[in-house]
Amino acid sequence: MEIEGSSPQDWTIAVDEKYSLRLFVAGASSMSVKAIKNLQVILENNLKGKYELEIIDIHQQPLLLQKEDIFAVPLLIKKYPAPIRRLVGDMSDVNKVLKGLGLN
C-alpha cells in the first residue's frame, strides 16, 4: 500500500535542511485541535520557514500506526534532523517541545 509521506522523495528535504515533522492526531478531538494549534505557534516562533509539517489523522491511516509504531496520540515525530524524536501530548509544554525538537 502506498503510504503518504513515506516515499523516498521525502528524504530530499533533508538536503534543504528543513525540519521534517509529522503530527499524528486522532480525529478532530479537542486534544487534536489543541496540539495542532500549540505546535503551529511554537514552530512559527522558532522555526519559521525551516520546517515541513504533515498532519495525519490516524483514523484515516490505520496501517501507518503499525509502521510508525504509534500508540499514544497526539504524537509528533521529528524525522529530521537526527536523532529521531517522538513527542507525545498536546504540545502545551513549550519547553519540552523545544527540547524534543533540539531547539533549546
Partner: peptide
Amino acid sequence: IEETGEYDLSG
C-alpha cells in the same frame, strides 16, 4: 519519547 502535555492512547 518526550511528553509535552495531555495525550491518550487512541493510537
